[in-house]
């Protein structure tokens, strides 16, 4: 009898455990409503495929070169050729079908605004979110100009970045795994 009781209790426990998540969901939440104005300082992401989220402002390639020398070259090297911490940031646009693919903003990014998003949120590494929008536009123009994707006299803004056609635009495929076809061989396998 005792063991039967235990079995019943165990069965209930297992049944409950399986659907605990749904059962425990509270009928009301504990969030506090927030307005767009209140959260705007955090709303920094760019939808990079269409440029939605790119702020107003602009910057020139020439300004970007100057800002890069002041704030970026310590780690990335003079002229973005590679520095004490990180490697070269341009070129290799035709490297994808070679054994040594070059990974940098110009060769890899399918959409130009990716560079704005990343630089604004994470750079410089020791002072992220310190660059103004104008500075980030200028730096984006400068970095892309080193690979010839932007002319040296260009002024970069939201519209400019959104309209750029990147070399690796069609370089991505979606996840099609599982792709390996292994069999569970047990004897005389090799």
């Amino acid at each position: 009898m005792q063991s039967l009781k235990l079995a019943v209790i165990a069965a209930i426990a297992i049944g409950f455990g399986g659907s605990a998540q749904a059962d425990l969901k509270p009928s009301s939440g504990f969030g506090k409503p927030i307005t767009q104005a209140e959260l705007s300082a955090w709303d920094i992401d760019i939808s990079t495929s269409d440029g939605v989220g790119l702020p107003s402002g602009s910057g020139t390639v020439a300004q970007g070169a100057k800002i890069f020398a002041e704030k970026c070259a310590t780690c990335h090297g003079e002229g973005a050729k590679g520095g004490t911490q990180f490697g070269q940031m341009f070129g290799g646009l035709d490297s994808m079908t070679t054994p040594k693919r070059k990974l940098n903003p110009s060769s890899m990014f399918p959409y130009a605004p990716i560079l704005f998003d990343y630089t604004k949120r994470a750079m410089p590494m020791d002072a992220p979110q310190s660059l103004t929008n104008n500075e980030v536009y200028a730096l984006s123009g400068y970095i892309y100009s080193l690979s010839g994707l932007v002319p040296k006299n260009a002024t970069i803004d939201a519209k400019y970045l959104s309209n750029m056609k990147m070399p690796n635009r069609n370089g991505f495929i979606s996840d099609d795994r599982p792709d390996a076809k292994a069999v569970r061989c047990l004897s005389k396998c090799n």
Binding site: I46, S49, D117, Y118, N168, S174, D175
Partner: peptide, 27 residues
Amino acid sequence: KPWHLRSETARYTDPMPGGKWRQFSME
């Protein structure tokens, strides 16, 4: 739609034959 950020294009993608990259391979 997805954001296609640096961490899901230039990084955390897998090189595939023909110069391609497999994206959003998260499993």
